[in-house]
Design a binder for these strands. Structure first.
Lengths: 350, 350
DNA sequence: TTGTACGCGTTATCAA
DNA sequence: TTGATAACGCGTACAA
C-alpha cells in the first residue's frame, strides 16, 4: 500500500488559492484522493458502478468523500463524452394552465429518470430565439417542445446539432423529431355527439388563436359531428386560451345568437364561458351545455365541475419520456408519432 | 497569413470516429478553426466580447461557425473556472397553484438574465434527497428553494458546497442563506381588520398543514386583529393548501359553527371554501365573508372574484433574482432577508 | 494581434 | 487490481 504522491504542480495551485482564496474551490477527486491516500483514478472508480476496486479501498474513498463533501462534477463528467443528463423544456406560455400541468408532469417524469429539465418559458420572454441559442450551448440530451406556436426553425436547428427533439401537442414533420399528440378531432367529435344526443342543435364554438393546430383540429372534429347530423355551428368566436378571453368570447357569442351548446378549444376558456353564462343568468346545463377540452385540474373543482374532453396529462408525459428514452437508446431510429386517445369526462355542465 | 496546421493527433481521432461514427460529434472550436484557417484560440476570441482579434478574421470565423452550426460548449466553458449559469429551483409541490405561479415568474426572471433554471419538483418525487444529490453534482450558480416543507439539512448541505441558497417563502436562519418572504402576519391582520370593520364577529380559519410557517404566521396575524377587538376565532380547521381540502375543511366548519367571516391560509383553499358555501346555499358575501391569501391568477377569474391578500408574485420573483445577483457579485456578503409587503385586494367575497 | 500551452475535473484506456 | 495518462472543449496567460 504505497502512499499516493500528489503532483508538485498541484501543490503550487493550492498555494495560489491559499494566497488569494477569492472564491471557494469545489472539492475535487484529487482532494479526496489525497485525503484517502489513493490515486485520482481510484476515486473515480469508487463512484463508478461495476468498476474494479478493492472493497476496503472503496470504503476508505467513500468515507473521505463524505467527510470532504465531495461529489463528482457533472460538468466534467458530461464533457468527457457521455451525456449531460440535461434536457431542455421549451414551453410556449407557462401562464396557460394546461401547459403548466403538462410541464409539471414532465418535470416529475424526467426527475424520476435522472434527467434534469432546464425550463425556458416563451411566454415571459422577449427574445425566445436568443434564449434558445444560449441553452443550446449546453450539450443537451434532448429538447422537449411544449408549444403550439414555436418557430419550427428552432426545432430544425436542434436536429442540426444532433439534439433529439420531442414535440408535444403539435406534430412536426421532420425525420428526426418525435411527436406526442392527442387525437383532437376525435375528442371534440365525441363531445359534439354527446350534446347532439342530448338534443342540442344550436352550437357555438370558442376557438384558440389562429395558427394553433390543436384548436383547429378540435374545431374540425366538432364540425364533422355536426355535419353528420345535418347541422353547422351557429356562431364561432376566438380567444387566446385564457379564462378571461373565454369570458369575453362567450359574451360576444351570447350577443350574436341564442345557443344551447357551447364547445371550447380548451378548459380555461370554457371556465371563462361558464362564468359569462352565469353572470348573464343562463342556466347551465339546463338551457346551455358547455364542454371544455383538456381536463385540467381546475375542471374538477367544486363550483366549476366542468364536463370536458380528457387529454390525459400523465399518459402524455409518460409517452414523451418513453419516446425520449427510445431516441437516446437509438439515435438513428425513424421518427415516431404517438397519438393519445381522449375520453369524455361527464360532470355538471353538459 | 500562415495557414493554421492542425495537430496530427487530432486527425487520428477524427479517423477513429470515421471508422465508427456511432454518435455524432458536436462541432468544436477546433473544427471551426480548421474551416476558417485560424488557430483554435482565435475562434474562442471571436466569441469573446472585448477580446483582441482582427475584424476580418473575426468575420471569417463567425461565417465558418455559422456554416458548421458551431456554438461554444457551455459545459466546457463552465468547467474552465467560470460559472455554469445553471440555477436549480427546488419546488415543494408544483401542484400548488401559488408555487407554480412563483416558479413561472422565477423561470422568466432567470431566463431574462441568462441563467438557466433546472427544476426539481418535490411533489412528484419519491426521493427528494437523492434527486437533490444528483443535481448538486452540477456546479450550480445558485439554488432557489421554493418550499415550505423542505428538509433544511439539504439547504445546509448546499452551503457546504459553497452554492448560494435563496429561500423563498420561508426564512432559514443561516449566515449564508438569503431569504425572500412576505409579511404574512401583516397581511392577514389587515384582512381580519377589514372584516371586523364590516361588522363581522364570528371568524373561522382554514389553516395549512402543520409545519408550514407561512400558514401559522398568517393565523397569528388574524388572531392579533381579533384579540385587539376582544375576539377569538370560533372554529379552525386545516387543509393541505388544495382547493379540494379547502372545500372539505369549510364543510366541517359549517357543521361546527355559524360563521360570518372565513379567512383562509391561501387562495386555493378559499376557492374551495367558496364552492362549499355556495353548495350549501350560503350567500357570499351577504351572509359570509371569505378572504384568501396570495392573489393567484384564479382569484380574479370571473365566477370566483375572490377578495384576498395580495402576495405580489412578480415583486417576489424580482427580489429573488436581485438577491441572487447580489450574492453572486459578493459571495461573502452577510445574508439578507427581503420582506415583501402585502396589500388587500377587494373583490366580491368580503 | 496571434498562436502555444496549460488547467478546469472527470472518465476511459493502457500498461504494470 | 492499480496508477499514470490521454482525451473531452473551452478560456486565457504568456510569449512572440
Amino acid at each position: 500500500m504505497t502512499k499516493y504522491d500528489p503532483k508538485p504542480d498541484r501543490d503550487a495551485v493550492d498555494q495560489d488559492k491559499l494566497i488569494a482564496p477569492k472564491r471557494h474551490r469545489r472539492v475535487t477527486a484529487q482532494d479526496v484522493a489525497e485525503a484517502a491516500g489513493v490515486s485520482r483514478s481510484a476515486v473515480s472508480r469508487a463512484f463508478t458502478e461495476g468498476a474494479y476496486l478493492d472493497e476496503e479501498k472503496r470504503e476508505r474513498v467513500r468515507d473521505a468523500a463524505l467527510k470532504l463533501g465531495y461529489r463528482p462534477n457533472a460538468l466534467a463528467a458530461g464533457l468527457q463524452g457521455g451525456r449531460s443528463h440535461l434536457v431542455a423544456i421549451f414551453v410556449g406560455d407557462m401562464r396557460n394552465a394546461y401547459d403548466t400541468e403538462v410541464v409539471t408532469r414532465l418535470v416529475g417524469a424526467l426527475n424520476a429518470i435522472q434527467k434534469w429539465p432546464i425550463l425556458i418559458d416563451g411566454g415571459g420572454l422577449s427574445s425566445v430565439k436568443e434564449a434558445m441559442g444560449e441553452v443550446l450551448r449546453y450539450p443537451l440530451d434532448a429538447l422537449i417542445l411544449r408549444s403550439g406556436s414555436m418557430d419550427p426553425a428552432i426545432a430544425r436547428e436542434c436536429t442540426k446539432l444532433h439534439i433529439p427533439v420531442i414535440s408535444s401537442g403539435r406534430v412536426l414533420n421532420h425525420p428526426q423529431i418525435d411527436n406526442v399528440c392527442c387525437r383532437n378531432a376525435q375528442g371534440s367529435q365525441a363531445a359534439a355527439q354527446l350534446l347532439l344526443d342530448r338534443g342540442r342543435q344550436n352550437f357555438g364554438y370558442i376557438a384558440g388563436p389562429l395558427g394553433y393546430s390543436s384548436s383547429s383540429a378540435r374545431q374540425d372534429g366538432m364540425m364533422r359531428a355536426l355535419a353528420a347530423a345535418g347541422l353547422a355551428p351557429v356562431a364561432i368566436e376566438a380567444g387566446d386560451f385564457t379564462v378571461e378571453s373565454g369570458f369575453a368570447a362567450a359574451e360576444r357569442l351570447f350577443e350574436r345568437a341564442r345557443l344551447d351548446a357551447l364547445l371550447c378549444a380548451n378548459d380555461a376558456m370554457a371556465i371563462g364561458a361558464l362564468g359569462a353564462a352565469r353572470a348573464r343568468g343562463i342556466d347551465v346545463p339546463a338551457d346551455l351545455s358547455i364542454v371544455g377540452f383538456d381536463d385540467i385540474s381546475m375542471a374538477r373543482w367544486p363550483g366549476i365541475n366542468l364536463t370536458t374532453v380528457c387529454n390525459p396529462i400523465d399518459i402524455y408525459a409518460d409517452k414523451v419520456v418513453e419516446l425520449l428514452s427510445a431516441r437516446l437508446a437509438d439515435p438513428e431510429k425513424p421518427s415516431d408519432v404517438a397519438y393519445i386517445d381522449t375520453h369524455l369526462v361527464l360532470r355538471g355542465t353538459h
